[in-house]
C-alpha cells in the first residue's frame, strides 16, 4: 500500500526541497531521540547518568543494568527482576491472540458469506465494543472474574483480552472476506463442501495476509495493555507493562535509571521486533482499524 510507486509529480524548487529535507530529518531526530537515550543510558553505570550527560555515549560499557532488570531488580516487593512477568505476558498473549484470531476469522466468514437479516447490526455492536472506554466495564469485570475465581490470574486476562479483541479481529476478517469472491463459496457448495469444509479448504488457505495482520495487531495491543493488567492481575500474576511501571515507580532506594531504561526496552522488545520484521503488515493493520472501506 505505502510502498507503491509514487505517482505524484509536484515540482518543487531548490530552497523548498532543502527545507523539506531539513524538516524530515529533524522529525526523524525527534522520533529517534528518546529511544536512543534509553538505549545508551541502559548500558551506562548509574554514576555516569546522574553525574554525567544523558546525551553522551557510555564511557564504561556495562550489561549489568540489563541483567538487573531481567532477573534481580526490585519489582513491587520481590527482587525478581522482570523475568517472571515477561513469561506472564507470554502466557497471556499467545492463547489470547490465538483464540481471538480464530473467532474473528469464523465471524468474518459468517458475516460475509452466510449473510442473514440484521447481520450488519450485529457486526456494528461488535465493532463498537473496540472503542468503548474500558473504564465502563472495569467494575463488573472485576466482580465476574472474582466470581469465576479468575481474579489475579493469567486465565482471567486471557478471557478479558479475547472478549475485547473480538471486535477488531472480526473487523479485519470481515473486510478481507468481503473482497473474497462469493462465487467460490457457491462453487464449493455445489461441489458438496459444507460450512466448515469451505472455511478450512477454501477460505483459510487464502487468508495468509490477513491472519498476519490480525495476529500482529492483537499481539501488539494485548502485550501493550496496561489498564486490564493493572486492574485484574497486579501482584505476581501481573503482565510485563504493569511490572515495568512498578519497577519505575517504586519509591524505595536510589532511582536506578539505567535499570529502568533496560526494563523499558525489554518490555518494548517483542512488539518492536514484530514491527521490524513485519512492519508492512503492522501498518496495514493500523489502517484497516481506522479507515474501513
Amino acid at each position: 500500500m505505502m510502498s507503491a510507486a509514487q505517482t505524484q509529480s509536484v515540482r518543487t524548487g531548490h530552497v523548498t526541497r532543502m527545507f523539506i529535507y531539513l524538516f524530515l530529518l529533524l522529525s526523524a531526530l525527534f522520533y529517534l531521540l528518546p529511544f536512543f537515550i534509553m538505549l545508551t543510558n541502559s548500558v551506562k553505570p548509574l554514576g555516569e547518568i546522574t553525574g554525567g550527560n544523558m546525551m553522551s555515549l557510555p564511557e564504561v560499557f556495562t550489561l549489568e543494568p540489563w541483567k538487573a532488570a531481567w532477573s534481580s531488580a526490585q519489582v513491587g516487593v520481590e527482587p525478581t527482576g522482570l523475568r517472571p512477568y515477561f513469561w506472564n505476558s507470554i502466557r497471556m498473549v499467545v492463547p489470547a491472540v490465538f483464540i481471538s484470531t480464530i473467532l474473528g476469522a469464523l465471524n468474518g466468514y459468517v458475516l460475509t458469506k452466510w449473510r442473514f437479516r440484521f447481520d450488519t447490526i450485529l457486526f456494528g455492536l461488535m465493532l463498537f465494543s473496540c472503542f468503548i472506554p474500558f473504564q465502563i466495564v472495569l467494575i463488573p469485570m472485576a466482580r465476574i472474574l472474582g466470581i469465576l475465581g479468575l481474579a489475579g490470574s493469567t486465565y482471567g486476562l486471557i478471557l478479558v483480552h479475547v472478549v475485547y479483541g473480538i471486535g477488531f479481529s472480526t473487523l479485519y476478517f470481515r473486510n478481507y472476506y468481503a473482497a473474497f469472491p462469493t462465487e467460490l463459496v457457491r462453487a464449493a457448495q455445489i461441489d458438496g463442501a459444507r460450512f466448515f469444509q469451505i472455511f478450512r479448504r477454501i477460505m483459510l488457505p487464502s487468508s495468509g495476509p490477513i491472519i498476519v495482520v490480525c495476529v500482529i495487531w492483537q499481539f501488539t495491543n494485548i502485550w501493550n495493555d496496561f489498564l486490564f493488567g493493572a486492574s485484574f492481575a497486579s501482584g505476581s500474576g501481573a503482565p510485563m507493562t504493569v511490572a515495568l511501571n512498578n519497577l519505575v515507580q517504586s519509591s524505595t532506594g536510589v532511582k536506578e535509571y539505567n535499570v529502568h531504561f533496560a526494563g523499558a526496552i525489554l518490555a518494548a522488545l517483542p512488539t518492536l521486533l514484530v514491527y521490524i520484521v513485519a512492519g508492512r503488515y503492522f501498518v496495514r493493520g493500523l489502517m484497516a482499524g481506522s479507515v474501513k472501506g
Binding site: M2, T220, N245, V248, F261, A268, T271, L272, Y275, F282
Partner: peptide, 24 residues
Amino acid sequence: ALRPIYLYPMALSFIVTGTAWKWF
C-alpha cells in the same frame, strides 16, 4: 527509511513511552 522511523513509537506500550519521556 524515514517512514518506519516516524511510525515505530506506535508499536510501543504507552508505559514504555511514558518511562522514556519521564526521564528525558
